[in-house]
Design a protein around this nucleic acid. Structure first.
Lengths: 191, 191
DNA sequence: GCTGGACTTCACTGATCTGTGAACTTAGTG
DNA sequence: CACTAAGTTCACAGATCAGTGAAGTCCAGC
């Protein structure tokens, strides 16, 4: 629903910018590079997106949308309430590359809280936390909000450990830890 | 032992660069800005550090050193084996600011694996994982390596969630989750 | 009194950065 | 045919980027 109204040139610009921003970083990639790699002139880039900041925001918005779609698909595919809770961890395996979380990386580069991208980063994390809380409540655990925060921590940590610390089993390991915490919360607080 | 041999000017440069790199990002801060804010000429900066990349590496090295010192102190202050395992989480509360983990942020900006800073980032994460493993072994848990990875994930996730997701309770929550996993591992795998 | 280290001053280089102005082409649509 | 949207070409602005060369100042220690 977002990417449909883009002109062919704009779509190419956004695709190329997304790859380059994610792989090399936002500040490290100039608009000239993006335009050239898109087979488009810089004029077109500015006609379509207005500014580099706006292009960065479009990049984050598009990535967020794809990510949420994947999670939603995994959620539908999951059966029991516990697999639903853990669905975001299952998506991670095929989602994350060796450059970590695009939103965390963008946060590192966007020091200005007023940058249009910052609101999107905020949104993404709040969405995931809320999703955990909703599914945990459905799964019938005590204090779904508190456990949701712990699952968010595990989720973010999995991405960081996998990429930054180059730990290949981090995602699997985080999922196991999440499963254990959920099981304990369902089994009762006395365990 | 590292910062002792620095000249007064170099020390000021390193202090200022550390603050600016952390607060605004590496690419966003130019050497002119650093020199000016240090009350030093650009010539001095290059005479002392040789290049911006080398200054970035010095920044990460100094920060790593301070961090390890803090963890070592907390480790000594801790009593029982379990508090020793959880000591890094206790340091986090007073360590982390609102800009997240300096090493994760640097990773986001340094896309070149050959950058001198990348090795330092790697070192830092491997050091922490090894520390968790050592302390877990001392605490007598099964599979200390596996649990160490889970604690690393919780640790990194705590920093990210606290700063990027603006979750004020993330560190406390991560510590609680870590404590629960350790307790379960000590109580026996059947729980 | 001389030497060497720390640092300054200042003028550069050449590249790269984001962003713009104006005129032109091209293709599709009423 | 006329209109419009998409895109091109190209020259340009003004700033900032990392990094250098050469000469000079200041001061502590031998």
């Amino acid at each position: 629903m977002t990417g449909d109204t883009l002109t062919p040139g704009a779509r190419r610009i956004l695709e190329v910018a997304s790859e380059l921003f994610y792989a090399r970083g936002i500040h490290a990639v100039g608009v000239d590079t993006i335009a050239a790699a898109s087979g488009v002139t810089k004029r077109t880039l500015y006609d379509r997106f207005g500014s580099k900041d706006a292009l960065v925001a479009a990049y984050l918005r598009a990535r967020d949308e794809r990510w949420r779609d994947r999670v939603s698909d995994a959620l539908e595919a999951a059966g029991d309430p516990v697999s639903r809770v853990l669905a975001p961890f299952d998506v991670l395996g095929s989602w994350v590359a060796d450059r970590g979380c695009a939103f965390v990386n963008a946060f590192a580069e966007l020091d200005d809280p007023g940058h249009p991208g910052r609101a999107l980063i905020d949104d993404e994390k709040r969405w995931l936390r809320a999703l955990f809380a909703t599914e945990l409540e459905r799964a019938g655990v005590d204090d779904p909000d508190g456990l949701a925060l712990q699952l968010l921590v595990l989720h973010e940590g999995a991405l960081v450990a996998q990429a930054v610390a180059a730990e290949p089993g981090a995602i699997r390991s985080a999922r196991a830890a999440a499963a254990q915490l959920v099981a304990a919360a369902r089994g009762g607080p006395g365990v």
